[in-house]
Design a binder for these strands. Sequence first.
DNA 1: TTGTATGCGTTATCAT
DNA 2: ATGATAACGCATACAA
Lengths: 340, 340
Amino acid sequence: MSRTKKEVTIYDIAAQLDVSVATVSRALRDDPVVSVKTKKKVFDLAEKYGYQTNQFARNLRKQQTNTIGVIIPRLNSYFMAAVIAGIEQVANQAGYNLIISQSSESAERESINVRTMFNNRVDGLLVSLSYHTNNLDPFEKFAKKNIPVIFFDRTPESSTFTNIRINNVQAGYEATKHLLSKGRRRIVHVTVSSTESVYRERFRGYAQALAEYGVPLDMNLVYLGDLSLEAGADAAKFIHSLPQKADGVFVANDNCAAGCVIGLKAHGLRVPEDIAVVGFNDDPVSRIVEPNLTTVHYPGHEMGELAARSLINHLNGAADIMLTQTILLRSDLVVRESTG
Amino acid sequence: MSRTKKEVTIYDIAAQLDVSVATVSRALRDDPVVSVKTKKKVFDLAEKYGYQTNQFARNLRKQQTNTIGVIIPRLNSYFMAAVIAGIEQVANQAGYNLIISQSSESAERESINVRTMFNNRVDGLLVSLSYHTNNLDPFEKFAKKNIPVIFFDRTPESSTFTNIRINNVQAGYEATKHLLSKGRRRIVHVTVSSTESVYRERFRGYAQALAEYGVPLDMNLVYLGDLSLEAGADAAKFIHSLPQKADGVFVANDNCAAGCVIGLKAHGLRVPEDIAVVGFNDDPVSRIVEPNLTTVHYPGHEMGELAARSLINHLNGAADIMLTQTILLRSDLVVRESTG
DNA sequence: TTGTATGCGTTATCAT
DNA sequence: ATGATAACGCATACAA
């Protein structure tokens, strides 16, 4: 339990070398003001002693924590895991630590998490919003103290914070247009009732594509759930019960789309012959469900890397992220069997 | 970029209340030695000022970091995400931070990660080993300094560290026995060539069950891959090419099992009529692939909670985890359509 | 180029 | 029950 063994400090090195701790401190950080000779001596001895800088002393002194806070809705999708992996990679490499917490899609828990992060004095925050976040007040404390906040993927509709995301309107538009191009005209949209912009934008894209093809938007064809596997099954039931048969579905995520495909088949509908299905995310399940899902692919790992890199560059003063309003990543429609 | 606004410290409170910082410090930590009256005054003012203890000063002083290191092979399975979520929940609640890093199934990267954790002076380590870890030397530094290390799920074959896992021999035994009880006799086992014990134990269980039914172990029926979706497809090809038809498969994880089922079907084999399949993990894909997979369920979230809780209790001195060699969690066979 | 001295915010020891 | 003060290890303003 005890952490007794004494650590070696710059004092030890200074004493051994008969120089001041200031010199050692400077040498260790490669301060150009220190002579090459002294630096070498210091480095060598530090190496020999296995010296490690004490981050806490340094943080205390510098008034910053070298820690990045990450708040996500849930760590339960392949996509989110990929994003986190990307963040982790960049942060680790840059010597930053990560505090990760989950809002579980609750605006309230999100708000608590934000406060915790604040109290932990994170240097910056990376956030993907919950379904139900309807105001950004909790983040204002960060803004007031000039602590950078970057939203990724699930970004707010409008704010002064930096966003990293894809063009969800366009992605939704392309997904729907693909169905239309296959001759489908009664297209159901399965999504979530969310205050958060991502799903609203996908819906907008859906509506735009319909409009372009002269298909009137019918809100009776929009099914709201929580986008879970089970919600997909419910959506299938809904579709099956429709008085006028639908011939296409655009589901706002793959998990739910997979549940929907399975449900549709259970109801005796053939995919894609009777009804074509498009998902979103290019989750591995899209290649397991039969038929494989046509879906929108976008780069989770890269998004994570980019978010972390942007934040860290900003913290290092290498770039001012606050000047950047939005970074858009590209997304692609991947066509598979579920749309024939 | 600047973090200018001055934080309120115990000095501010002390000055305002005309008591010493020592008293404030004690009061804030609810030290029984401080009078109730003083305590109340301190609490109230701290509340009013929005005082937050500076963790770095505290860490510096107490020589501990309040940080737990987590090393996992990959954040790419539902199971692992669940474990992490469990760890995060407990750690966050106990005021511990998490540093998470991934070994990507490489013993070398794992070793580097261990060193990084050590240099970051984590208070304790939670580890799930890579496929290829064949010695525990990197962890010896921790042992030497009495920094607790707990292995979970992918635990070492034998060591003095604490392990949290399921009985993989038994789980493998039950999975295989289930196939045998369905009358299957030529049972393929798909697993990974790993130095790490989990998969070897599952194999042992497989062998045990066969022995119990008087079925000779045939190493030609053991297929080695990396347990990915693609490896599942390869395994299916292997099974299809078998001179003597197999009638059962036990795959060491669900992802791979799903790939295998799809591959088998592509080769014209009916599941479960021609060949029954059992997976492992109860991953969501097990309920998406058709037919749904019979699989071994075990509690990832609980495992994460338990690992974190054990570590933190140990750190708090509430329990000495080092006395505990192994904690076994229960696992259950979930029977679904893939075994008829 | 190097050294001196001080502060960062807590906790712990020793007095009172 | 409370106070004074010395660490904890590092970074920096200022001096030399």
